[in-house]
């Protein structure tokens, strides 16, 4: 029986005696595409940081490819894009190529050295996101949208088995955003890459994700978008009007 890519069971997390997450359970198989949604402060980013082992859970268990995140070693299987753009240092003196190359670190043994052959996956990732022409530019001199695409390329370059993207389409214009979601769909359907996306854009994510997890310090809903649209729990949570609005927007985009 194949191991779940991610298994979260009865997870709780407290920060400074404040309950941030309570009794979270869900699991993802290879090839799942999860939209992680919820209001600001609902614990979405904290959940991801727990999954990646940056924080220790107060209660419950997390298993990433069958391992506790604290002892996880196979980082090459993971592509991660943090919620970034706001805290980006605009004076960082690295070229686009140097930044994307960092995404290959997890595949290198010590001492980690980059080689000419690394240009193949780097150029491929840059091409996928339409930024190959700026590979020698300084990242600090790019627009916010271009910087975000560079960071997405960095997360994708190692061809990970799971991509975890925290608000990836911030600052990206609608045309590129559609193309980006298309790239993710290709990776998910053709290469069976598991995807977790944190987003506020429920309409768009409903169009692509196979699962939706609505979080508000606890799991409010976990299931398909179709089930979300007819869920009484969600109708009670949002109000029927808001639920119809979200689902109508999703349907009209199809």
């Amino acid at each position: 029986m194949p191991v779940d890519v991610l298994f979260v069971d009865k997870l709780s997390f407290q920060y400074n005696s404040t309950e941030v997450l309570t009794d979270i359970s869900f699991h993802l198989k290879a090839g799942d595409y999860l939209g992680l949604v919820g209001p600001n402060g609902s614990g979405k980013t904290t959940l991801i940081k727990l999954v990646l082992g940056f924080f220790k859970p107060t209660k419950g268990t997390i298993s990433l490819f069958g391992y506790n995140p604290a002892g996880f070693e196979d980082w090459y299987k993971i592509g991660y894009l943090p919620q970034k753009i706001a805290s980006f240092n605009p004076h960082f003196p690295a070229t686009v190529r140097e930044v994307v190359a960092m995404g290959l670190l997890s595949k290198k043994g010590f001492p980690r050295r980059m080689s000419k052959s690394d240009d193949v996956p780097i150029n491929k990732a840059l091409e996928l996101l339409d930024i190959l022409d700026i590979r020698n530019e300084l990242i600090g001199e790019l627009s916010g949208g271009q910087q975000q695409r560079v960071l997405i390329a960095k997360a994708m370059v190692s061809e990970p088995e799971i991509l975890i993207l925290d608000e990836p389409t911030t600052a990206i214009d609608p045309e590129i955003r559609e193309k980006f979601y298309g790239v993710l769909k290709g990776l998910n359907q053709n290469k069976n890459v598991t995807i977790i996306i944190i987003t506020h854009d429920m309409g768009t994510i409903g169009k692509y994700a196979s699962k939706l997890l609505y979080l508000d310090k606890r799991v409010i809903f976990c299931g398909s978008f179709e089930a979300f649209c007819v869920s009484d729990d969600m109708a009670n949570y949002f109000g029927e009007f808001a639920q119809h609005l979200i689902c109508h927007r999703h349907n009209s985009k199809q």
Binding site: F54, W75, Y76, Y80, P82, K84, F92, A94, M102
Partner: peptide, 14 residues
Amino acid sequence: FSITFDEESAKASG
């Protein structure tokens, strides 16, 4: 270089 750019991403790269 990696932790100077972003410590969180560096952690997720092992």
